[in-house]
Nucleic acid binder design. Structure first.
Lengths: 216, 216
DNA sequence: AATGCACTAGTACGCATGTGCTAGTGGAGA
DNA sequence: TCTCCACTAGCACATGCGTACTAGTGCATT
């Protein structure tokens, strides 16, 4: 921890939630009292910090209109030398693995304890981050690999035909998987499955199925 | 602010996100240095604090398996005398109005500034809280009232028939509204609409749409 | 070798969904 | 008054969706 390259000089904290961002900032300050820490609010804030060149990037972030992997790649492209920690609420191990394979160095759930958050931001690429990854229960634990791929696409609003195209299998086969997913989630329709699998955005830790938001 | 009844003795902070909860705790401490403040993690934590009898309740909370209004009513029933502030990410003014009509005293977005959060927790039932309500853009701004009611039910995974039953109108009429909503959100299927309207949960502050994921 | 399971692909059937029409009512505003 | 618009209700048609079958392949375990 006291090696030269594991001690970031510049830390960028990017998150749209003001209070959470502040808390992350404080935590980063606690971990690295000497570092210069900046905050960025959303995509625009991130764009405004292109010259900051942080060593460590703590971010809850998706490129507008793009998916997780694309966003991860974009981040890596923008910050090729930074240690990028995604602090978010992705509940799917598969997506986490995907972003970890595409530019993001570490992932921590927003529900994680301080300890885990600190561990993530003090870890470096040389160290083990497996322990830092996801610490939330995955409701899809009982699903097969294919079923998870299908539900991942389903919650994007994709039709069976589209899912089939993506996975390069028959729409008939997709229906098999969808059907199994519905049974697993104990719902009747794909929309209900999407809602249940997606969470509602209001309180990721507490199950629910009412309402929400989000635009485009 | 210095009247006797506006100064809470006991404050309960309930939120599943540990760091955010801590930050809320700190903020509450800043607002009311003398108060006894407790934290609760999720539904279970809330249940464990039934004897605490807080004057002020800062909560991001839904009853498991129940909707916003039911949760609000439950909260009010559990804490009949508390000043209940919902700190969450509900983006729909209508749902906010509904919970405000059913037990919750005030709502603040998680994206709000400290100032707004402080304002909400220092407000009392006698004061104006209109200014404290929602400060996030509602992607459904252009929708009619009925359309919002429909999308609210749609994102619960309800079928047209179920929506019709709830709103006490014909399923044919529901289809009219659903169709309008799909056009408005620029999607082809109700599932895609639900996803788009629900957000993806990964980064509530940054718009997106191509992808998503999410557990519960 | 045999069993189990995931994955694949198909058919058939029934209901749900989404669109495009027509049409009536009531309220707000010019 | 006349117009605009939200809301209501229906019909027709095409497509999507979900379930219940059958069936074959490949892999891992016993």
């Amino acid at each position: 921890m006291e090696t030269d390259n594991s001690m970031p000089d510049r830390i960028l904290v990017a998150d749209g939630q003001h209070l959470f961002r502040t808390a992350l900032h404080d935590l980063a300050r606690k971990a690295y009292p000497l570092a210069e820490i900046r905050e960025a609010d959303g995509f625009e804030g991130l764009m405004a910090c292109r010259d900051f060149n942080p060593d460590l990037l703590l971010v809850d972030f998706y490129c507008p209109h793009y998916d997780a992997v694309t966003s991860a790649k974009w981040l890596r492209g923008e910050y090729p030398a930074s240690y990028i920690v995604l602090v978010s609420t992705v509940p799917d191990q598969k997506v986490v693995d995907n972003v970890l394979d595409n530019g993001v160095d570490a992932y921590v759930s927003k529900f994680a304890e301080e300890r885990a958050l600190l561990a993530a931001m003090t870890a470096t690429a040389n160290e083990t981050l497996n322990e830092v990854r996801i610490d939330e229960k995955d409701p899809r634990g009982g699903m097969t690999g294919r079923q998870r791929e299908v539900i991942d696409l389903l919650v994007q609003g994709k039709s069976n035909k589209e899912i089939a195209r993506v996975l390069k299998i028959s729409p008939f086969t997709v229906r098999i998987h969808v059907s199994a997913v519905l049974r697993y989630l104990d719902v009747d329709t794909r929309t209900a499955a999407a809602v249940k699998a997606t969470g509602n955005g209001i309180s990721q830790s507490h199950v629910l199925q009412r309402d929400s938001e989000r635009g485009r």
